[in-house]
Amino acid sequence: MKILIEGLHKAFESRIRLGIMSALAVNDMLDFNSLKEYLDLTDGNLASHLKALEKENFIGVKKSFVGKKPNTKYFMTTEGVQAFDDHLKGLERLIKSQK
């Protein structure tokens, strides 16, 4: 069982966090509202998942202003790219091993 879960990161157990990482994997940067629309979440729910990923150092935050409105953009860190990649490889191995 230990070999099977190699590479699978606990932070990605949640499908919402997996979704955030997937969206950021194919976009250089995404703002809060775009992520909210893709994942169909409430502000608070999305914010808490983003915080968790930020804590793991998987995503970075860039704050700026559009006019007077604050605009927060998220991007994947190199660490995040690595972890997400490992997670995908882990999933692949897991499914192959069970065939």
Partner: peptide
Amino acid sequence: IRSMMERS
């Protein structure tokens, strides 16, 4: 993952 990558 696939669907999110495509949709976004």
